[in-house]
């Protein structure tokens, strides 16, 4: 079993022929992801990286059987690209684009309601199922196959956590980078739910940061429904109030946005919270040994 993407996923790249799209599509193909083509309006009928280019997502679904899409379209056009993918029947839409206006995302969120699809991101590193498929921009070699699922708002911090998990002898099932924007398609809780339901996943690493209430929501769900150990880390313990720390969503507004407040809620809900991002891997290894014993 795998979460969101697998070796059977038929992936298309929206914004295929652009610099980013081209670079990451070739990396994905090299990893072994089944990329069945891409979409660049106006370039339909041509070939790129030995794969067909389509004018519309609908065409890519009909002709290439695409069911997963990864989006590298510039911010001004990204909301349109997400809605196009949803309308065409794509089941998993991964939006890498950073810098989409909030107003556009409010419309996207509304548009996706009730549709049979899932949006990951935007402003995220994507999703990787170790040994099967990489639909994202992460360095694939870090994610060696194993038993731990990762949910994270961040890119490089996800790679850091995955690397520690692998070095602790555990390895990864699926890592889901949900993104650092104020409005994202899949919440921390929803991503945790997916990993809880995955038979191969034995433990979950949940990486959050300052801003918003998603980690608290996930923690409360875990308290009621969790069946696997969860190690949590909240980045930004030293972040000042009212300043945006890189990610558009990473800003402390009220008292509940702080790392300290989130860490407290996580602890109260039975999540093992690490203070230092350097101890994510060893902590998970310790807990799993305890569970086995």
């Amino acid at each position: 079993m795998s979460v969101l993407v697998s070796k059977n996923s038929k992936v298309i790249v929206q914004g295929f022929t652009g610099t980013e799209g081209t670079f990451h599509a070739s990396q994905m193909i090299e990893f072994g992801t089944k990329v069945v083509g891409g979409v660049t309006p106006g370039k339909g009928g041509t070939m790129h990286l030995d794969k067909p280019v389509f004018n519309t997502v609908e065409e890519a679904v009909k002709k290439a059987g695409a069911d997963v899409s990864i989006i590298f379209v510039p911010p001004a056009f990204a909301a349109d690209a997400i809605m196009e993918a949803a309308e065409a029947g794509i089941k998993v839409i991964v939006c890498i684009t950073e810098g989409i206006p909030t107003k556009d995302m409010i419309q996207v969120k509304e548009y996706l309601k009730g549709r049979d699809c899932r949006l990951i991101g935007p402003n995220c590193p994507g999703v990787i199922t170790a040994g099967e498929a990489k639909v994202g921009i992460m360095p694939g070699f870090v994610f060696k196959k194993g038993t731990i699922g990762i949910v994270s708002k961040s890119g490089t911090l996800t790679y850091e956590a995955a690397d520690q998990i692998v070095k602790a002898g555990l390895g990864i099932t699926t890592a889901i980078g949900i993104g650092g924007d104020p409005i994202i398609g899949t919440s921390t809780m929803e991503a945790v739910q997916l990993l809880m339901a995955d038979k191969e996943t034995e433990g979950i690493v949940m990486i959050g940061e300052i801003g918003g209430g998603m980690e608290a929501e996930a923690a409360r769900w875990i308290k009621e429904n969790g069946t696997k150990p969860v190690v949590g880390f909240i980045a930004g313990q030293t972040a000042p109030v009212g300043r945006t720390m890189g990610h558009a969503g990473a800003i402390v507004g009220g008292a509940e946005d702080t790392a300290a407040a989130k860490m407290k809620i996580l602890r109260e809900c039975g999540v093992t919270v690490v203070e230092s991002p350097a101890t994510i891997g060893v902590t998970m290894a310790k807990i799993l040994k305890k569970v086995v014993a």
Binding site: T156, L157, E160, G236, T238, G246, P277, A278
Partner: peptide, 17 residues
């Protein structure tokens, strides 16, 4: 000096610790 916003925040935390 860090690459990535999340890792940058985490690095700040490491400095404090």
């Amino acid at each position: 000096m860090v690459n990535g916003a999340g890792l940058a925040m985490a690095t700040m935390d490491i400095i404090k610790l």
